[in-house]
């Protein structure tokens, strides 16, 4: 299924990029670019970058392309524009393009070092043993295997069917509770809030941690500790924390491409898919190490827009 969607998007993106390059009409080129960039947004969804996909559609398809079309409209004094270059320019460009394409494809095919990572669900402890055995069979002794709690799911019980405000309050209360218990829980964040299907009075909140226990030298996610932190706070009088479940997982690091593929395709192993990366992205941008670059990027955008307004205005006013 993933492969079908990928090849569909790849075909659309590449064919319409070709139209952008070859068409004689600059308006057609702009619309083909819109389709091509939309397909790139589809790739972002496949790559678990939901937020980036939305931003791609908003900024490119909604913003930049409208700007480009305005540019076409305001500069099309000569309606039939000579878009194509003479053959004397076309041949060297094709030559350089083909050489670059061959080089890029060659680099893309080369083997990466053994640094693939996989995380499997492991509810019964059986998966860890199975993965260890498979790694021995495949001769991948250098891979590091680690059992951890990858996700904690909190279940709240209300008196009756939950209203949206109650759900929002519960989320806020959990976030405040985790913040108050710093630093032991400072790297935990709420990754999903969802109602339980078939039980309208229940609410589940999933927590994940930023980074891996191995990389930041912290103690693994501990469900009983989280229950201890969150037990005293009830978001509302009628909402109680009734269960804290930890989702056990096995993290395997340092895999080569071949072993990675073999493990991924094993039918007995379930890959733990991330719920969403949007929360992590927001965390990195607003609270984490990218706050300053984020502000600087915003400032650059503001200065660029003011500069654009001044440059364009100068030509119009008498």
């Amino acid at each position: 299924m993933e492969a079908v969607v990928f090849y569909l998007l790849a075909g659309v993106a590449v064919v319409f990029a070709g139209v952008v390059v070859t068409t004689r009409n600059v308006v057609h080129a702009a619309f083909a670019l819109m389709v091509s960039l939309g397909a790139v947004a589809g790739f972002y969804v496949l790559l678990d970058a939901d937020f980036l996909a939305v931003i791609q559609l908003l900024v490119y398809v909604g913003g930049i392309l409208v700007l480009v079309l305005f540019g076409v409209m305001m500069t099309s004094g000569r309606l039939i524009m000579q878009l194509r270059a003479p053959v004397g320019q076309l041949l060297p460009a094709t030559f350089v393009g083909l050489i670059l394409l061959g080089f890029l494809l060659h680099v893309g095919r080369s083997e990466l070092p053994n640094n693939r990572t996989l995380v499997f669900e492991d509810s019964d402890g059986e998966t860890a043993r199975r993965v260890a055995r498979l790694l021995r069979e495949l001769g991948a002794e250098s891979a590091r295997l680690q059992s951890e709690t990858a996700r904690v799911v909190l279940t709240f019980q209300g008196a009756g069917p939950l209203r949206p405000e109650a759900v929002r309050d519960a989320r806020r209360a959990v976030e405040r509770g985790l913040q108050a218990a710093r630093p032991s829980s400072s790297r935990l964040y709420v990754i999903q809030v969802q109602e339980v299907w078939g039980a309208p009075e229940r609410l589940q909140i999933a927590l994940e941690r930023k980074g891996t226990p191995a990389s930041d030298g912290m103690a693994p996610l501990d469900p009983s500790r989280i229950a201890e932190i969150l037990q005293p706070l009830s978001p509302r009088e009628d909402l109680r924390l009734i269960a804290v479940q930890g989702l056990r997982a096995v993290r395997v690091q340092g895999l080569s491409e071949a072993v990675y593929r073999r493990l991924r395709e094993d039918p007995a192993l379930r890959v733990l898919t991330p719920l969403s990366t949007t929360a992590g992205l927001g965390d990195a941008l607003m609270l984490g190490e990218f706050l300053l670059p984020f502000e600087v990027a915003g400032l650059i955008l503001l200065v660029a827009l003011m500069g654009a307004a001044i440059i364009a205005r100068k030509g119009i006013t008498p």
């Binding site: 990029a17 952008v20 390059v21 320019q89 460009a93 094709t94 350089v96 393009g97 670059l100 890029l104």
Partner: peptide
Amino acid sequence: LLFVFGMFAVLT
């Protein structure tokens, strides 16, 4: 492929 198409457009 996208990169090469883009570069081709810039060149020609």
